[in-house]
């Protein structure tokens, strides 16, 4: 019988407690036929690789160059997004709110992390943090300053609190420097943060 080396590092790396617990729940649900690895992989692939802020960015870019589309988006985002197959997946409604010279909009979910998934994907961790959830309503200008955004004193700051039933997308102002760009190029100016209201459009890096 060959001698086995006693190497305490030889076993597989032990996952964290919550990771083991998730694995346990997944096994239980799989054995009950409620989930399957294939279905979960598909969902993960969609949210990790296919849905993301680039979708919202295309909507914003189109609104910047097509005033009819913009009006329709602001007055009835629901039907426009429905036509584009971008309606809420959990039955929620979406409202698009426009930044202007007088208004800066920002979005939060004070209770959990409701977010327009089909347009922006999964929210970043700061959106889910207590710090952001608790402070965005109380001291929005201070929070915006931490993101490097300083709305002018003539701009009022409106904070929209998302719920399971209503999500918001900020339509940022088109930067003057972006004028003349085509729609695809404009979309590259639009960051996730500017559609949450914690950023402003940035010139794409070439």
């Amino acid at each position: 019988m060959p001698h086995e080396h006693d190497d305490h590092n030889a076993h597989s790396l032990l996952p964290s407690e919550p990771a083991l617990r998730v694995r346990a729940l997944e096994t239980i649900l799989t054995r009950k036929g409620l989930v399957s690895a294939e279905t979960l992989d598909e969902i993960i692939d969609v949210y990790a690789h296919k849905i993301g802020p680039h979708i919202g960015a295309k909507i914003v870019a189109r609104a910047w160059i097509d005033s009819d589309f913009k009006q329709a988006l602001l007055t009835n985002a629901e039907s426009i997004l429905g036509e584009m197959k971008l309606a809420g997946r959990q039955g929620e409604h979406v409202q698009v709110v426009e930044n202007t010279a007088n208004i800066h909009n920002m979005v939060v979910c004070t209770l959990c992390s409701c977010y327009p998934w089909p347009l922006l994907g999964i929210p970043p961790s700061w959106y889910k943090s207590d710090a952001y959830r608790k402070r965005a309503v109380r001291e929005p200008r201070a929070v915006l300053a931490e993101f490097g955004i300083t709305p002018s004193q003539t701009q009022s700051v409106r904070v929209w609190d998302s719920t399971a039933e209503m999500r918001y997308l900020v339509l940022p102002m088109m930067p003057v420097a972006a004028a003349g760009c085509d729609e695809a190029t404009l979309a590259r100016w639009v960051t996730r943060d500017c559609m949450v209201g914690t950023g402003i459009p940035k010139a794409p890096q070439i």
Partner: peptide, 21 residues
């Protein structure tokens, strides 16, 4: 092409599995 130099959508595989479930 999307131009977002962002951390991965799910920081840990178990976040993704839990979300998907």
């Amino acid at each position: 092409a999307p131009d977002f130099a962002e951390p991965p959508v799910f920081a840990e595989p178990w976040h993704a599995e839990l979300f998907a479930m």
